[in-house]
Design a protein around this nucleic acid. Structure first.
Lengths: 202, 202, 202, 202
DNA sequence: TCATAAGCGAGACGGTACGTCGTGTCTTACG
DNA sequence: CGTAAGACACGACGTACCGTCTCGCTTATGA
């Protein structure tokens, strides 16, 4: 379980952008957060970075891919399990991390979503950067809880592992109500934990 | 309780588009589903509807608002409580409805989200059309379940009423894994219901 | 000769616009002088006159005809022979009249020219209002001069009767140098009169 | 004197349009003569020249300026003194040249006049392309005639040098009667020459 | 006196051109 | 050879205007 995580982390860190490319991506991310996707122009990116458009397009074949690269670069971070010692602590910490990450990049993520759904290659990258990494993390947390006897191993639903981050992301992106620490606590206590421990009482 | 429902229905139907406007929105929605957001052109909408671009822009000041209007018009439907007689049945039915609605318009919704987050007025509309309506529906379902004694009234969390639709929307929009009937059933059985009935067993 | 003049005057005065129509034409002329032909809009005319566009179009079938009507209405005036007693006096007076008339309506005339050249019917009206009237006037002046023995009757060139007004109009409309009283005097003394009296010296 | 002519030729040729620009102007002029000013569309110009509208608008900020440029380009020609050896010959040739040039572009010139009168910058260009060039030509012709003793140097009126072309232009643009070769001959013989030689007989 | 019609204001409408802007490709000249 | 600068074709956007039309309201005439 730990292996798969580090694997993902390695994969994520594997993106070897040259310094110049990093600079371009940073400019892109900056402008993206300021303007949103479709008010961002490649010309502006090039001009701000004192680069030529050709320089941009040599690396990323379209605006969409440029933006996605900038986004994944911006959101990448070492995915380390919380290790608070209790399932509830781990889940709450995880939820708060999600809130933190998403909160900063809500606009960007909204913008990127449009393109991701159109381009399978982008979707692939997105899944790796965003989903798989988180999945391993979550499964690791649950695995440890099961090892501690807090939940039954069978309670882990393969399909619904992402209810916690998923709902929080929904709150941040779609609904107008950004999630707070209270939201996370309530969610864990009233929804996630009851779901995981539903068979423990019997 | 029934009254509140009909009230909602009225509210929902209250968006008074003229016949011509409805026609324009239908054309927009049609082309939207065929082509996606940015391959949709306002010229095409006007031409297909045998209308002038000015006629379109007189109503909706930008392509984004036109698309949002078409989307909310398309997603709107009689908001009637499922009334299956059991809480589980109601929830499953509600979840399936959400899947159905979102499934057709995922791309559109993604595109619309970007604009909504920028324009407070659009956000307002979005909230009313999308969120509030669903909220009263959900609260009604829960209220009836409480009346039947299936759950305690206290179990209804004011903040987390939208976990069911929210997670499903997340699945459809953000994660690459569109929710299925199985997803809904699992979600209701393993997450939502345990959360609602967590205090019933004690 | 006098008859033909009064005939023209009558023709010119014959245009019987209703008070409302005169008002519309005045507004048109006003806006025309302020904005020029293509920055003038029929909507603006209607709005300024607190009229409906239908009211305008009921009278004049196109913007061009409206503008021409306004122009001819604005420029119309009793064409009376100067009768100064000498050919030079008559010519100078005529030239000054032309300068005066054209000076006020140079912009309008420029604007109208475009349309006149396209629409034969407008051209017809233009000829009557603008050209024929002047022609009779000039021929009358020359006829009286011939009667006084100032010039030979043969010196009157049928084709070149409009050199005096024509050149002045050219100066006002095309060349950037608007004609002055000095211009008129020089023109009469150094060009027109020598042309008319060229055979008198022999 | 010959130097001043070549100078003018150089000046006239000095308008340095790039080959692409010349191509665009030629297409514009072509469509202009086929369709007239307002049936000419910038889209058609761009399409015919296999150019983008942006390419057109990068050079000329409006349709009016494009047309003016095309017109002055089209009307420009080697401004060489006729050199027929006699004043009359020179004048007639000059007049015929004017008729020829204007005849083809009357409609265009009419359209252009409106814009020129509004935009001082265009007026400037117009003056240089159209007026100044012609003026030095005319003064050269008169100078040579004076050198030959055909006229007195004093007969050249600084203000009225453009009666010949001016009246012809008036005839072509304003009056409905386009000038012919006979018109030119009559004008030169009956008006211009008498004016220039009026003091020779004494 | 009332109604039926004709004229009017207001302004939506189809059509079409304008002028702007952004993407992705390409060329030129520099280092 | 990679790069900065930026022109270019393509095509959508949003605006403006023309000439037509429909809608009510008012006014003026005819029973």
């Amino acid at each position: 379980m730990v292996d798969s995580v580090s694997q993902n982390v390695d994969l994520a860190s594997e993106s070897t952008w040259s310094p110049r490319e990093v600079e371009l991506l940073e400019v892109t991310l900056q402008l993206l957060q300021e303007n949103g996707y479709d008010r961002l122009t490649v010309d502006a990116v090039a001009a701000t970075a004192r680069a030529s458009k050709a320089t941009v397009y040599r690396r990323w074949p379209s605006k969409a891919e440029l933006v996605l690269a900038a986004f994944t670069e911006g959101i990448r971070q070492v995915a380390v399990a919380p290790e608070t010692g209790t399932l509830r602590g781990d889940l709450v910490r995880l939820g708060e991390l999600v809130c933190e990450q998403i909160g900063q990049h809500a606009g960007t993520l909204r913008a990127v979503l449009v393109e991701v759904s159109r381009n399978p290659a982008l979707n692939e990258v997105m899944q790796q950067q965003f989903v798989d990494q988180r999945k391993s993390l979550m499964l690791e947390i649950l695995g440890e809880a099961a090892a501690r006897g807090e939940i039954e191993a069978a309670a882990v639903d393969e399909d619904l592992w992402d209810v916690l981050p998923g709902y929080l992301i929904f709150r941040a992106l779609v609904s107008g109500r950004a999630p707070t620490a209270r939201t996370v606590a309530n969610l864990v206590d009233n929804v996630i934990l009851p779901g995981l421990t539903r068979d423990m009482d019997s």
